[in-house]
Computed example of a mutant assay.
Amino acid sequence: MFVRTAGERDLAAIRALLVETWHATYDALYGAARVTEITDAWHSIASLKARLTKPNSEFLVADDGKRIGGVAFAEGIGGGEEVVLKQLYVLPALQGRGIGGMLLDEIIESFPEARAIRLEVEAQNARAIAFYEANGFVRSGDAGEHAGASGEPTLVYIRPLAG
């Protein structure tokens, strides 16, 4: 897999990856119908396309030349001193192979002025929490500003960066 900037031609594959990953992760927690509702709203082609031109952001894919295996999206805020990781997903069949780490590293490198990277994660997503903690993130004392799919506040994790 190599990491590159996402393009318009990737949007259908990115949507398919997000739908598959969300169902694999959340069907047991929220039910398939609720997950379909969420992915239709949050991961539509139109909403993904808007990210391609969003200022102060980076939209990446992990690609092996045959398929998109992972996706990440982040935005710089506060004059670029903080990065907010909005998405980092890897196809379930490819998880545990370093693809998420490659995407995370490239996101961080894309914001050289950043002093910290922050994310919100569903409290029930133990696998994602373990990944982020293994990659240097620590839980912040704050509840997330967004409700997760469960309607509960998400957990906030922060990783300081050498800035």
Rank of each mutant, 00 (worst) to 15 (best):
S150M: 09
G136M: 05
G144I: 05
G98A: 12
F131Q: 05
A28M: 06
I107L: 10
V138A: 14
A93Q: 13
L94E: 10
T25L: 04
R15P: 09
R115K: 15
G69L: 15
E8S: 14
Y157L: 10
E75W: 13
E152M: 11
H146V: 11
L18S: 08
G96F: 04
G141D: 13
A143T: 03
T25G: 04
Y30W: 09
G69W: 09
A93F: 09
A128S: 12
A6L: 02
L88V: 12
T36W: 02
F111M: 11
D105N: 15
L29K: 01
L17K: 06
I99V: 15
A123R: 10
A46K: 07
I108P: 02
S110L: 04
G136K: 03
R159P: 01
D63F: 01
A134N: 12
F131V: 02
L60P: 07
Q124T: 08
A149F: 04
P112L: 08
Q95L: 06
L18I: 08
A24Y: 11
A46L: 04
A123N: 09
G7H: 06
A62V: 04
L60N: 12
Y30R: 01
F137G: 02
I107M: 08
G96D: 14
S44Q: 07
D142I: 12
G65W: 02
S47A: 03
E20G: 08
R159M: 09
D40L: 14
F111I: 00
E122H: 06
A126S: 15
R9K: 15
G96K: 12
A12W: 10
H146T: 13
E145N: 03
H146C: 12
V19K: 06
T5D: 10
A72D: 03
H146E: 14
